[in-house]
Design a protein around this nucleic acid. Sequence first.
DNA 1: GTGAAAGCGCTAACAG
DNA 2: CTGTTAGCGCTTTCAC
Lengths: 362, 362
Amino acid sequence: MTAPVKPRSTRHAATLADVGREAGVSAMAASAVLNGAKTSSRIADETRDRILEAARRLNYRPNATARALAAGRMNTIGFATTLSRTELNQYFLEVFNGVIEAAAELGQNTTVFALADWSDGARRIPAFCDGRIDGLILLAPQLAADDAHRLPDHTPLVSIHGNCELPGVINLEAEEEAGAHAMVARLLALGHRHILHVAGPPHVLGARRRVDGYHRAYREAGLTPPADGVVAGDFSAESGRRLLSRWLETHRGQEMPQAIFAGNDAIAMGCLDVLTARGIGVPQQVSVVGFDDTVLARSARLTTVRQPLRELGQRAARLLVACVDAKLGEGPAPNVTTLVLPTELVDGATLSPPRAASLRIE
Amino acid sequence: MTAPVKPRSTRHAATLADVGREAGVSAMAASAVLNGAKTSSRIADETRDRILEAARRLNYRPNATARALAAGRMNTIGFATTLSRTELNQYFLEVFNGVIEAAAELGQNTTVFALADWSDGARRIPAFCDGRIDGLILLAPQLAADDAHRLPDHTPLVSIHGNCELPGVINLEAEEEAGAHAMVARLLALGHRHILHVAGPPHVLGARRRVDGYHRAYREAGLTPPADGVVAGDFSAESGRRLLSRWLETHRGQEMPQAIFAGNDAIAMGCLDVLTARGIGVPQQVSVVGFDDTVLARSARLTTVRQPLRELGQRAARLLVACVDAKLGEGPAPNVTTLVLPTELVDGATLSPPRAASLRIE
DNA sequence: GTGAAAGCGCTAACAG
DNA sequence: CTGTTAGCGCTTTCAC
């Protein structure tokens, strides 16, 4: 019987076995001392010192993959999002900051999965949940109810701004309808009557909710929204530019809207571009308001509706980690299925009362 | 001798052993079929089908941690950066997009490590390199040469905008001095003479290089920079606001600078805030130019110096993965130690020739 | 108090 | 072509 060759691993500085050998004890003892093992009652102080000393001398580093394999936990959460390669996603950045911050506080790493789109996501998500992450946050997922059964059930999931209920997936969102309503109600209260809503994609729940808020504000004020008052595209500056340009083209000679309520800040920025290019003063001639309160809004001093994006990220991370803990029997499972945070109006420099005389589109 | 209890793992849907049992073959056969094993020449078609069928029935998913432990590779790269909790880092976002994009193309995941600051980083980096990532990108690290020996040598590192040479670490950067020089030279060519440089932190190499470019442009034009022509703070809008406000306070009654060259776009945005608040027209009365060409610049139509941030991220990821491959004997090691990409001027709406009459600071 | 043994799931080597 | 064996580094019973 030949003694098994123990090939000296070159992959890591030192293993527990190395440390044990150096200290003249077993690897288990080393493990007990170096990693907060719950198993060992106590190791003799003298032994412990010897082990610590050996570890320092060999520059011992625990191996995360081995530990993960044994523990069934990687201490890493995933964050899945679509990331366009042409337009940087401020929305992502805000939420991500919250996620990574809260995760770090809980000793968890964050790995980001960039999706081309969500049909891609539905296909790839199961593959992500293969042990490299302990749980996954879905950012603004566009999943069909049909995709639900394909989602892995052994990995906790949390969604932010999910577009449909997914069984077993906690969803976090903000009061978008209420936020949109409050903003449009304020515009109406200031005297604006002709408000154009340049909306996001109709297949996105949040975009529809903003449209709903717009309509409710008119309704509750006893007013009727203008004909052609809502145009929809996607959530990008480019879309804002395109939609508004086209709208102005097709309504040439008619009355210029007094205000533009953009579906998000990026759209608002696109609208600002168009107005500026036409020499139309904001807010002197037309008011423009956005939605989200991303850094874009702050840098342009845009009047907007704030969604607590960073906080959504933080909460999502904390809930997710709680789910992971619970799955491993290390705590109670959070008993929420949905969490809705408030929105609020943010004052900027792009909103004022409507001018007295109406303006014609040239 | 008691038979070892095989506790049915509840952690994963199914293991290779499960699949093998179901298909009536060994786990190795299953491994060979399900994961592209190079070892086995061929498995009988009939067997292979049986295995695939069993895998599908059991919904088999390979376990990434087990695979990583055996293979010594996690297929994940790390991205370490400082992330302020008060101001969102557009610079980070741009580079990150490049990193994640290139990494994904190479089948690698990306995990982000958020550092409070780089002294923190020097301490924590070794701990990250414990097998959970195969290599690490350092974004704008501020490391002392002294920290070098603490960096792990078993994990490949790549830095972007590193502040000092680190042995064995490939560094990527842009021609910052040249970019700053080109911009200031253009300002001078337009007729500006009194250019205030609101710079970044002097301990950051890139900030110093921009100052150098500023000085060289004056020198080569045969001119002398104004006294008090450079003020330094950090790379944030807040710093830009504070520095410019203070500068204007302390120079009250003197001549207003004709142009402001900001150390980065965030600083430029801060300066724009201050000028706007004072009712000073940009660029009619004062020109403002930035550095980086982040999304902030684009949304404000800021004239700026473009650094190819996304490309820096892409290149860094590709180089890093090449290093990882090389370490595992799967390819040649890249033989570069430094990569410098060009910068270029970006036209915006915040630069014009100086006005004829000089302006006094009120 | 400490060590021996078994196993987390997968893979590389070698035997059959 | 397929199965057996050993081992990646760490942990967790369970004897001693």
